[in-house]
């Protein structure tokens, strides 16, 4: 602000009118440069440690072992075990996100209409805490509960129920879906709650006064308002399950192929020499998938925010 005033005074003090325009432009340029100079440390850091690594992944994905350009790595990422791991990662993300959306929405709706501020406060604090719970400790929590010798497993066996008698196993696909719910449900509650809060009781009253039944109200008011928020949340949950690594690594120990684990294996170097760069290609695939999901989330979240309580 002060800079602006100063530079304007400088310009005004110059008697030659014809010259002042170009001078004002240079001083504006200088002011702009000054304005952005404070961001230099951030941009240097971002270029080195976000730009550099991202560029390296993209660059190497299209580079052959001999150093020439090639699409072979990307093609390889869509064959054999690599393709299978992409498919099972997509399947896991889809299953985990849709169950997370359903249970999270049910709990969030129940809490939102409960009209109990204390309950709402507790649920929002707990959601914030549990949504950030993941990784290695979460895997061991579930091993302690429903692992082969887990407390719940053993306790239920004593009353004649064997949770491992069917196809369920903690260390496979079904187990991962269940364990991921531990952070997916709270995440869903956090992101969808503002949308539920935004539904105003006046709208329902207005609809009822105009003769709408409960079903009609949901069909034409409730569901259309909630839909962008719910679908947007789905994409956020999808991305978080698709990229999760630690819990899956501890639980499955590589028994089911998942894309993040596959990339990890290639990073640690257990790899056939001619496939060295396929890891980068799979990394690129991951960025693209998560990027698409997050783009949908951002777009739908912006649409949903129109109705949000301010």
């Amino acid at each position: 602000m002060t800079e602006q005033i100063q530079s304007r005074n400088v310009v005004a003090a110059i008697p030659n009118g014809g010259d002042s325009r170009s001078r004002r432009q240079t001083s504006n340029l200088r002011k702009n440069l000054f304005d952005y100079s404070g961001l230099i440390p951030f941009f240097v850091f971002a270029t080195l440690f976000i730009g550099g690594p991202t560029f390296a992944v993209i660059f190497n994905a299209f580079l052959s072992n001999e150093g020439s350009w090639t699409l072979a790595n990307v093609q390889l990422a869509f064959t054999d075990v690599y393709y299978l791991s992409l498919l099972s990662s997509l399947k896991l993300a889809l299953a985990s996100a849709s169950t997370g959306v359903i249970f999270g929405l049910a709990i969030a709706y129940g809490v939102a209409i409960s009209g109990k501020p204390k309950l709402q406060k507790i649920v929002s604090t707990a959601s914030g805490v549990f949504a950030n719970t993941g990784g290695v400790p979460l895997a061991f929590f579930f091993i302690a509960a429903i692992g082969n010798y887990g407390l719940v497993t053993v306790g239920l066996q004593k009353v004649g129920i064997d949770i491992y008698s069917g196809s369920f196993t903690l260390f496979g696909f079904s187990g991962l879906v269940l364990v991921y719910l531990y952070f997916q449900i709270p995440l869903m509650i956090i992101v969808v709650y503002p949308a539920l809060e935004g539904i105003k009781s006046e709208w329902r009253e207005a609809a009822v006064n105009l003769g709408a039944s409960k079903a009609l109200y949901w069909r034409y008011v409730g569901i259309p308002i909630l839909t962008p928020a719910v679908i947007g949340s789905f994409f956020l949950l999808f991305a978080s399950a698709f990229a999760a690594y630690a819990t899956a690594n501890v639980l499955t120990q590589g028994t089911i192929p998942l894309l993040p684990l596959q990339v990890g294996t290639l990073v640690s170097g257990d790899v056939v020499a001619d496939q060295a760069n396929v890891g980068f290609a799979m990394g690129l695939v991951m960025i693209v998938v998560v990027g698409i999901a997050m783009t949908f989330y951002t777009y739908l979240d912006r649409r949903a925010s129109r109705w949000r309580k301010r």
Partner: peptide, 24 residues
């Protein structure tokens, strides 16, 4: 700037590890 700070949510950590190995 906000967009740049949100990029780590799009680039999964495992890919960041890969990128660091490939660029540092």
């Amino acid at each position: 700037v906000e967009f740049i700070t949100l990029l780590p949510l799009i680039i999964p950590p495992v890919v960041i590890a890969l990128g660091f190995l490939g660029s540092m």
